[in-house]
Every structure is written in C-alpha cells, then in structure tokens.
C-alpha cells in the first residue's frame, strides 16, 4: 500500500491519517520539505487556510509542494486544503499553490451558524455522501480541464457551485469526509497512486 502524507502544519490532519490507517495504508505527518520526499500521495487537511499558508511560506514548503504535485503526485485538499491548492480567491489575496485552476470563495456559505451537513450526490459514487460543511468554501469558477464531481445549489444567487472537483492528480473538496465514516474520497485518492509504486521503493 502507498505511503500517504498529511500536511501537518495545522488542522485536522490526525482524522485524515486515522481514515488512511483504516484503509490499510501507512500515514505520515508532513511538516518539512524533507518529510515530503518519502510519500506517494498527500492530503492537505481542513484548518484555517491563512494559518496553513503562512506556515508553508515561512518554512519554505511552497516550492517543494508545488513541484511534487506538478510532477504528478496525487493530492487531496479538503476545505482549507482546497483553497490552498487553487489559483485564486474571491476575497483577500493569500498564498496559494496555484496547482488547481479554480477561483475559491472562502466562507461561501456564511459563518459558523450557517455551517451544515447534508447528503451530497457525487458523480461516480453509487450513493450520496454525508457531507459536513464547516465555514466551507465553494468554487466560484473553474478553468479548462477541471471536472466538477459535485455541486451545491445556492438559493440566494440561484446558482450551483462546485464543492468537489478533480483535475488529473488533484482532488479538492469543500467538505469533511474525515469527520464521518465514509472513506470513499480517501479510497479515490489511493486509487490515483500508480500501481506498484511501493514495490519500487
């Protein structure tokens, strides 16, 4: 099984690693460029995107992360992780990896009292996911090559906004499967790791 890193600068990385362990893969916490070397795929957890981004800049993680992802390493960003992967935000500019061609709206659903959970239909999944949205972002616009796998309807604007997208090796979701028992997104991430990669190591 592949070795899965979770970016452990801040956020709920332990919950992601617990889910990875249940799937039988090895999980490791990643805080430094050196710790990035030994992993086959990466999870960027939920947390506060400004805090994660500031630490990533300060500890010189931006370029090593960008290089590994552009080199094809599968990555899953959840919530703050989605913002971090994107190319733009609709609010105050903040450091982003720019490896996923989307513009993200932070706190798009509102403040904590507007946070919610709901069943979400996802393209390719045979039954809905229980999706937990916590001060969650949504995607305002996607560039070419970005597949939208799930959306949420916003009654205020009358528009649908993507909350689950994929572009090649990059997966990004607005919600938190690691707070539920549904491991299908994590299984999808593991399925993107090239077969036999751990035998090579």
């Amino acid at each position: 099984m592949p070795r899965v890193g979770a970016l452990a600068l801040q956020g709920d990385f332990r919950e992601h690693l617990a889910m990875i362990a249940e799937l039988g893969a090895e999980g490791v916490e990643v805080r430094t460029p050196e710790e990035l070397d030994g992993i086959d795929c990466l999870i960027i957890p939920g947390g506060e995107s400004t805090a994660i981004a500031r630490l990533a800049v300060r500890y010189e993680m931006m370029e090593p992360l960008r290089n590994r992802i552009l080199d094809g390493m599968p990555v899953l960003g959840t919530c703050a992780g989605m913002i971090f992967l994107g190319t733009a935000t609709t609010g105050k500019p903040q450091p982003q990896l720019g490896v996923l061609d989307v513009a993200v709206a932070r706190n798009a659903f509102g403040r904590q009292q507007e946070s919610f959970e709901a069943n979400l239909d996802v393209k390719g999944f045979d039954r809905p996911m229980r999706a937990v949205f916590i001060r969650a972002p949504w995607i305002e616009s996607v560039g070419p090559g970005v597949d939208v796998l799930a959306t949420v309807f916003d009654p205020v604007s009358g528009r649908e906004f993507p909350v689950f997208v994929r572009a090649g090796n990059v997966l990004a979701i607005s919600f938190h499967p690691e707070l539920t028992n549904d491991a299908r997104v994590h299984e999808l991430l593991l399925s993107l790791v090239a077969p036999g990669i751990d035998e090579e190591r």
Binding site: G11, G46, G47, F116
Partner: peptide
Amino acid sequence: ERGTDTVKRGLAEMLKGG
C-alpha cells in the same frame, strides 16, 4: 441540518494545532 454535534464539534477539529 445546522447546529448538529458534528458541525459544532467539527469547527473545533479544524482549529487543532493552532
């Protein structure tokens, strides 16, 4: 569904390590 245990406890989960 708003204000569920998962949603309320979940925000604290996101603040961890901070």
